[in-house]
Design a protein around this nucleic acid. Structure first.
Lengths: 251, 251
DNA sequence: ATTGGTCGGCTACCATACAAGTACGTCAGC
DNA sequence: GCTGACGTACTTGTATGGTAGCCGACCAAT
């Protein structure tokens, strides 16, 4: 609600309406504010955000390219359910890129780099102490991004970020469940320590097992929230909720 | 020219106009038919392809997301020049993903997989014998895609393909220059042989050096065709050609 | 000759109108 | 009661109109 009319206000800072809508929708999807499987409509979103269909539509096309929504022509657009295939693919991409970057970072990281990473670690511990889940997610993102930047491959981050989005939707639920923030932080610290020591293989292994722990959580979540997942690779029947509200409102 | 009116004809097969335009433009850009640095216009493309501006515009937005065009609002859209940063990033992504996939493929590849790869190799040799460069490019693409499919990570191919597009624009020029098609094919064969033998580390090394050979060619091309490259990371002055034709036509 | 202002033409951005197609509730016929 | 045709309301796809903004040429003033 708060972002409905505030969209045009922030428009002055270089970014156009399409980019703003894209960011808003992406945030809502990854934050599970828009539930997987639910239908979204270009018209409804345009009305809610106070813009026309065009920027909304263009944003949805980009989101479809990222695999966050599924567009069925003349049928509707739906927040994509979490697909086994997509999650596995995202995990593979993330693991390959982040570990490859880390291997390049070992021996290149300066004392300043390590110090900056440790600053993020203490911030994560503070977020843990305050049970600030949203803050931890943000700091976790920054940590992994910073780690890639140290390797000199910061420009590859968007690809990792896109893959990570598929995983993060499930993690939003898994993190409060298992409450293993401190465990994750410990793994982060281990990676930084091994990076500082220049121990390439063990650093790689530590990061890899860290990423796989995150991955394994997705399966636990699947048991608890099967409605967010899709057994089909390409669901041909998205199943729309019956439009009773229109009939009920008209009376 | 031939694709101007044939666009709507092929529209029946599921894909909509936007996807068709996207494919056409992507093909033209990667094939260097549209030169890096040249200006494109929604209006001109729409008129040429016989469609409205909407699908053209939506395609350009997707191409901008892939890094193949740069959109400057109210100024114009330009085929992106090859940027040092983008090429390095693409190389890193490609190498990390393809090598990681190959490591997963070793020990998993069946005799049938190896046989199918070898079919592609003989086809490549035939293309080499006939100096069929376009055919070789297509077969090269198929080979690398198939290699990833063997590992079970076929769904990660689009990411590789997108990174590869940045490299391919330069390779289109490097390949006829160095005429090393047979060398590349030999490297392909070596990878397949080592994959069949189950020699993980040597297969990884063979593929890695193969990919780096391709990468090193880009630098050679830069010396020959500097106009295709951009020194700036973000060129603020795209430099449009002076619109003299309008003045000259008006007399 | 140089500099500053103005104006025309271009651009992409956004809004809107129309077209094509699907899903689902309704109702007639059995 | 059940089945099948039909119509309405919805969807995305495409086309087109109008707007803000930038560039570059032209021209006047210095």
């Amino acid at each position: 609600m708060a972002s409905a009319e505030g969209l045009h206000a922030a428009r002055s800072r270089g970014r156009n309406t399409r980019q703003l809508v894209h960011e808003v929708l992406r945030s809502r999807i990854v934050g599970l504010e828009l539930a997987p499987g639910s239908a979204v409509s270009e018209n409804d979103l345009a009305a809610e955000l106070g813009v026309s269909r065009t920027p909304v539509r263009e944003s949805l096309i980009l989101l479809a390219d990222e695999g966050l929504v599924d567009i069925y022509p003349q049928m509707g657009t739906f927040i994509s359910r979490i697909r086994e295939r997509d999650v596995a693919s995202a995990q593979f991409i993330r693991e390959a890129l982040e570990c490859a970057a880390l291997r390049d970072a070992v021996g290149k990281a300066t004392a300043r780099d390590v110090a900056e990473l440790r600053v993020l670690l203490t911030a994560q511990e503070e977020a843990d102490a305050q049970s600030d889940m949203a803050g931890f997610f943000q700091l976790d993102e920054q940590f992994h991004q910073r780690l890639m930047a140290v390797s000199g491959h910061a420009s590859a981050w968007p690809v990792v970020s896109q893959a990570k989005a598929q995983l993060d939707r499930a993690r939003r639920l898994s993190l409060p469940l298992t409450q293993q923030m401190s465990l994750l932080i410990g793994q982060h610290r281990e990676v930084v320590d091994l990076l500082e020591d220049g121990d390439l293989d063990r650093a790689d292994g530590a990061l890899r097992s860290h990423l796989r722990l995150v991955f394994s959580d997705v399966e636990k979540i699947r048991a608890k929230h099967p409605e967010l997942f899709s057994d089909q690779d390409a669901p041909l029947r998205p199943r729309r909720e019956s439009p009773r509200r229109a009939a009920a409102r008209e009376d």
